[in-house]
Design a protein around this nucleic acid. Structure first.
Length: 635
DNA sequence: GTTTCGGTTCTTTTT
DNA sequence: GAACCGAAAC
């Protein structure tokens, strides 16, 4: 393979970097993925065994894309290479060694919905005063930051709730209870996967040695988004051979709210003496006019590797700034503009509307419907977290992990006249373990149910018994199918007004399960793979369809045309975000949005926002707009 | 004591 | 939409 021809000088240097630690500072649109993929190819060509290379990413999408591209480049030579998200790797290891950290290897993974429910249940157990006790969502986000930073919960609570009524001790008690309940039901939340994977490396020499020996080369994507746990874990993973290459861009660090610390990135060469640093600054994506805006937008931010994107493309048109009167006019303006560009030969699928938060796009969605334009929203609600999908998975969860309290209570709550209290009572009466493969346990459950719910139970009981008799543990779809047929399809009709749509979802879901060979691998996969539907939409690339997305979800993507909505003070930058941690991360988010655009960039800042109750709020243009020299924008 | 139901409120960002 | 709250119904 001719690497010199395929790469520019900057990329070539990084791809062919010698052994040892290397830091690749890859600005937006400079071929970061390309560089990583060629690095893999390069290592393979040097004779490195693919199974001894580890490639870590943050999202499933990124992992999939890189593996596909590597395969396209090298063919089967790449087989055996381990590539995936941090959470995937952690899950993989813990399925083998969870017993070393006090869990069963058949542990359940709690998604954010499960975690919140469990936390709520813990708070209810303590009868916490409803008014002053923080909501599960708020607590989860604090716990997550504490986990990510490795900071002290108490300090964080003081920081967050000073001058409020919140009793820190109560929160800490609930937190401890939450930890215990997870252990008791053999379940880990997302953070736990990382925490216990790291703990495994800290405490078990055998495990550490095995993996350190295996991973001769470690490549990490988006390193600026790692938290303390991930950075320490990476340090262990690459600890023996020290061939660690991390790639990232401090300008695009947008995950500090979940504990990411781009100091990991800035201080990389301090942590790893002898680090070779490579910079990719040549931008192939955008016109010079767009890059001028990007460079101007980010220049004032503190604490960063100073760098400017270099354009190689020819000049294009100036980015546009518009201030429509309100959200609807903004929506109509975008639709007109999109139609206009379409007439000039740009397909709608090459356009993307970006925004800070999903609800910013409500009015646009309405107007798009009215104009009968087709659009896709990159999943706000995640496919596997929808109620009906989670419902049909409860049986599988209980069968795999009889201690799964959340799954068991969820199942019982589907029955008539059974709610939170009764379901938990039944679960506790049975000793916190319900092995439904055993006939006598099934009968105990039945006896414990209120009379009105027993009939329903009888309908699904045969499925549990068949699980072992017919060896259905290799066929997750069959369980879901039988459950749906025996009970759930009817339940949907009675309980959802859009039952038909949900029924289709469930059918599609059953087809999807056929890809998996064991119930366990299936369950881990859907817990970690939060949006399958987005993945499928991406593959189709429907032409004539405009895409709507949050900026976070558009990271790493590029579009010929990019619209940015609601660039107004208190919306973008978001008020809460600024209050909590200043505006620098919001500014980086804006930078990410701008650098997605190849040819056309349209920034919108409506003058007012209409509220549900009919009220009108005046909006000021975002500081990010004001920071851009006026001659760089066309009004 | 629980469950259900109807009305109200508010939406950050993700594995 | 879904999470929450209070009141009515079981």
């Amino acid at each position: 393979m001719n690497f010199k021809n395929a790469l520019n000088e900057e990329q070539y240097a990084a791809v062919t970097a010698p052994d040892g630690p290397s830091l690749v500072i890859a600005a937006a649109g400079t071929g970061k993925t390309r560089t990583l993929v060629y690095r893999v190819a390069w290592l393979l060509e040097q004779g490195v065994d693919p199974s001894r290379i580890l490639l870590l990413t943050f999202t499933n999408k990124a992992a999939r894309e890189m593996l596909e591209r590597a395969r396209a480049l090298t063919g089967d030579a790449v087989s055996g290479l381990l590539g995936g998200t941090f959470h995937h790797l952690a899950n993989r290891m813990l399925r083998r060694f969870a017993v070393h950290v006090g869990f069963g290897n058949d542990f359940t993974i709690l998604d954010s919905d499960d975690s919140k429910k469990l936390l709520k249940s813990c708070a209810d157990d303590f009868k916490m005063d409803k008014k002053s006790f923080p909501k599960p969502q708020v607590l989860m986000s604090i716990f997550s930051v504490v986990n990510g930073r490795g900071s002290d919960l108490y300090d964080e609570l003081v920081d967050r709730f000073e001058n409020t009524e919140v009793a820190y001790d109560d929160v800490i008690r609930v937190h401890d209870e939450y930890q215990q309940r997870k252990k008791a039901q053999n379940a880990m939340d997302f953070d736990d996967l990382l925490i216990y994977a790291l703990k495994l490396f800290r405490t078990s020499e055998r495990v550490r040695d095995e993996y350190q020996e295996r991973f001769q080369y470690v490549l990490v994507d988006e390193y600026q988004d790692t938290n303390v746990i991930q950075a320490d874990w990476i340090n262990y993973l690459s600890g023996k051979y020290n061939n660690l290459m991390v790639v990232g861009d401090d300008f695009q660090s947008i995950y500090s709210w979940r504990g990411a610390n781009f100091r990991n990135f800035l201080d990389f060469s301090k942590r790893y003496p002898g680090t070779k640093t490579y910079k990719l600054l040549t931008n192939y994506r955008s016109t010079p006019e767009i890059l001028d805006v990007a460079n101007a937008a980010i220049a004032g931010n503190p604490e960063q590797f100073q760098k400017e994107l270099r354009a190689v493309r020819d000049g294009g048109v100036l980015p546009v700034f518009a201030s429509p009167r309100d959200g609807s006019e903004q929506a109509r303006f975008i639709i007109e503009k999109a139609k206009d560009l379409k007439r000039r030969g740009v397909d709608l699928s090459d356009m993307c509307v970006l925004y800070r938060a999903h609800f910013h796009a409500m009015e646009l969605q309405m107007e798009l419907n009215r104009a009968s334009m087709s659009y896709v929203v990159t999943s706000g609600t995640r496919f596997f977290e929808q109620a009906h999908i989670k419902d049909v998975c409860t049986l599988l969860r209980i069968l795999v992990n009889p201690g799964d309290e959340l799954a068991f209570t969820r199942l019982l709550e589907l029955f008539p006249r059974v709610g939170k209290k009764s379901s938990l009572k039944v679960f506790r009466k049975l000793g916190g373990r319900v092995n439904l493969q055993r006939k006598e346990v099934c009968m105990q459950v039945e006896a414990a149910l209120p009379a009105g719910a027993r009939e329903t139970w009888k309908k699904i009981e045969p499925i549990f018994l068949a699980y072992r008799e017919e060896n259905l543990d290799t066929d997750p779809g069959e369980i879901v199918y039988r459950f749906n047929k025996a009970f759930y399809s009817e339940y949907m009709v009675e309980n959802f007004d859009n039952a038909k749509y949900r029924a289709e979802d469930v059918d599609g879901f059953i087809d999807f399960t056929s890809k998996f060979e064991t119930v366990e691998s299936f369950l881990s996969e859907i817990a970690l793979q939060t949006n399958l539907d987005a993945e499928e939409n991406n593959n189709e690339e429907p032409s004539g369809t405009i895409r709507l997305s949050t900026i976070h979800q558009a990271k790493g993507l590029e579009f010929k045309v990019v619209f940015v909505l609601f660039l107004c003070e208190s919306m973008f930058p978001g008020q809460k975000a600024v209050e909590e941690s200043g505006d620098s991360e919001e500014r980086r988010l804006f930078y990410v949005a701008v650098t997605r655009a190849e040819d056309h960039l349209v920034l919108c800042s409506p003058e007012v926002r209409r509220q549900r109750d009919g009220g009108i709020i005046r909006l000021d243009p975002s500081r990010f707009i004001r920071e851009i020299p006026t001659q760089l924008l066309r009004r």
